[in-house]
Design a binder for these strands. Sequence first.
DNA 1: GCCAACGTTGGC
DNA 2: GCCAACGTTGGC
Length: 163
Amino acid sequence: MPAFWLIKSEPDVFSYADLTQAGREPWNGVRNYQARNFLRQMQEGDLCLFYHSNARPPGLAGVARVVRAAYPDDLQFDPASEYHDPRSGPENPRWSMVDVAPVLALPRLLPLDELRDLPAWQDSPLTRKGTRLSVFPVTGEQVREALAAVGVALPPAGGSSPA
DNA sequence: GCCAACGTTGGC
DNA sequence: GCCAACGTTGGC
């Protein structure tokens, strides 16, 4: 039974369309412990709602799938990277990443404003004021409601099974 | 271990 | 571009 997550990205930096084009992408650069801990819980096959933050409007753009579970984020070792962490070394990697692949582009962006109106989204790090967490779990009901709002169903690619 | 200063996130 | 909220850093 796959779990469900939400991952944020600024579309100016990396959009869902970019993921579609890339086919697969390491989800690197996460430098927050709570988000990292969620990354480490991800399993291959888990589905991720792909959220566009710092966008107009912000909202859900697509669904992605975890295609590789957590492994060390290579950018932390790269002095030239803005994500370099001098406290981290190959023997004591501090930061993790997963690989994700596109599953489904939503037929239209589902804006944050509409998400706020959905019953299952009343209590979420996304809609809670002041929360900036960029990776967190969502419920199956949240996924179902969000997809229903744009007229699509849970993609079978995630391995969702009937009850 | 406290806490002020600072940096970042992200909606507006 | 503004700014509220929050995480991290570092002096003590």
